[in-house]
Design a protein around this nucleic acid. Structure first.
Lengths: 153, 153
DNA sequence: TATTGTTATACTCTATAACTATA
DNA sequence: TATAGTTATAGAGTATAACAATA
């Protein structure tokens, strides 16, 4: 009897997150890509658009569209960068701050719910293990990307 | 000191999978969506397109395009359904079978690598815990989707 | 009537390339 | 020259709606 691999379970979790976000944002002006922009600004404060592009690993052209949409519905605003007249800083509006604070609270609640499904005696070990898996995977992905770049040259 | 939540680590893993797949399929005729079709057929054998659509939770219209692309590069073929002249069964070609077998082997190797980053004594407990988290999350997503549907009526 | 798959159309996210304003 | 951001254009994935063929 094949029990699913650990990897299959992790892929299942990834798929469930994606599906749930798509459902949650359906009918709203938000989307996973737009939330990515909001998270970046939430963590860093007002930033130039090319910084957001680098953080999300997409082209600056993309950020133009995402910020346009977020600005149109009032979650972010572009303000002139006092140190560089080419650039504009993107910051959260009060409405954007409120959204992100609510989202942080929802994350904490979901975190608690998921952790509750793990035996109390195992929780610390499981948290350590999942962090180790994430770090190992990040390392593998980074190495693969580097190898790709080397091959392209 | 905020250590990242378990949830943040799981979201990070989800993002890394997504990023790595995008990188891996870059420059090939494959993509995450097309691989989804191939996995479905790999697990079930030749199936009607609307069955694939239901399995992936997308519209049948989508499957037309994905199967068109996979057929054009030789991974799948459409054959008449002997039991229903409206439908066509989509099955893997020998080339498609070979691709999926290779992919299964790569998954097993990645699974072993990730598991190796967990302390040997904790592995069983971690596998059980991640399975429990995945099941709990699946339950939450399913309930949320049901609540949405009820609200829409 | 209902179902299977397609054509037609549109929206989001993504990319590259060419351009502007500034550094 | 190089950088920050935009306009122009294109491709993939998704959706709805209307339609053909068949059940």
């Amino acid at each position: 009897m094949d029990s699913p691999l650990l990897l299959d379970r992790l892929l299942q979790i990834a798929d469930l997150f994606q599906r749930d976000m798509a459902r949650e944002y359906d009918g709203t002006p938000l989307s996973p890509a737009r939330m990515g922009v909001l998270w970046t600004i939430h963590h860093s404060g007002p930033v130039q658009q090319h910084t957001i592009a680098a953080a999300l690993n997409v082209t600056p052209r993309n950020i133009t569209g995402l910020v346009d949409a977020l600005e149109a519905v009032g979650y972010v605003e572009r303000i002139p960068d006092p140190t560089d007249r080419r650039a504009r800083l993107v910051g959260l509006t009060p409405q954007g701050h409120e959204l992100m604070e609510r989202t942080v609270r929802e994350h904490a609640a979901l975190n608690a719910t998921l952790l509750a499904s793990v035996r109390a005696a195992d929780r610390d070990r499981v948290e350590v293990a999942i962090a180790a898996i994430a770090d190992r995977l990040a390392q593998l992905v980074s190495e693969a990307a580097k190898a790709d770049k080397a091959r392209a040259s």
